[in-house]
Design a protein around this nucleic acid. Sequence first.
DNA 1: CCGCGGGCCTGAGAGC
DNA 2: TGCTCTCAGGCCCGCG
Length: 293
Amino acid sequence: MPELPEVETVRRGLQPVMEGARIVTAEARRGDLRFPFQPDFAKRLQGQTVTGLGRRAKYLLADLGSGDVLLMHLGMSGSFRVIKPEHEETPGEFHYPRGKDSVHDHVVFHMSSGADIVFNDPRRFGFMKIIGRGEIEREPHLKDLGPEPLGNEFDAAMLARACVGKKTSLKAALLDQRVVAGLGNIYVCEALFRAHLSPRRLAATLATKKGEPTDHARRLVEAIHTVLNEAIRAGGSSLRDHRQTSGELGYFQHSFQVYDREGEPCRTDGCEGVVKRFVQNGRSTFWCPKCQR
DNA sequence: CCGCGGGCCTGAGAGC
DNA sequence: TGCTCTCAGGCCCGCG
């Protein structure tokens, strides 16, 4: 499921009920997700105050009062939902479980705010892991990540530099989290479309020319900024699993220009092209061969 | 070192 | 209805 806009949507939904609140109890309702839970995972969270909730690429990081950090990843199908108390009730009163469809509810946090936070992940490609704050830079999942696409350091010069010597397609380069961290299949397709660049183009063609980033690199950075910001504003894209923490769907899928639009007309003004699909590195690429070069 | 293909899981949808 | 097949928003690993 989740690429950067979906994860950021989840972060914004969880922040008000997590930050400043205490995890009264945590439950891991099975032994593993993508990896086995650490021994005493739930116990180590019990009683911890969440002092902040951040995001790095597609990872969520909850800072804990103990100085530890809870690292969370949603995999392909992970989602969080917040179950709020119906009235102003005594904190400590739990509201979960609820509903029948809870087989894939794998982790539950009972918060001192009165909210229950439920992590659901049918495919179990997600994971949670507690690490020390000092270990963040050495953490294998984080240490090779490239720049945040919406951060200050990600610009045309940086992208151009990252493309130097790349022997792969532009599509594959943008999916490579070492080049830029947070894009996935949808937003790579959408950004390439908006920049009118072919997913088949060699990544190295964006590389720095005589110390100056190419216009193509500038266009692409601009397209990435636009598409991510719009998607965050829309609460992400809901194809099947993604939900906002309120349970509402995101609605950026209605703004897709190419993703999942095979055979439909290109939406570029004056372009008579048709959206095509083909497989690149084992993933579907959607694009308009007429206006993406 | 780099780039690619397979594998990890479950569920939805298409086709028969 | 029910079976089988393909495909899905991510990432790790092993191979060449």
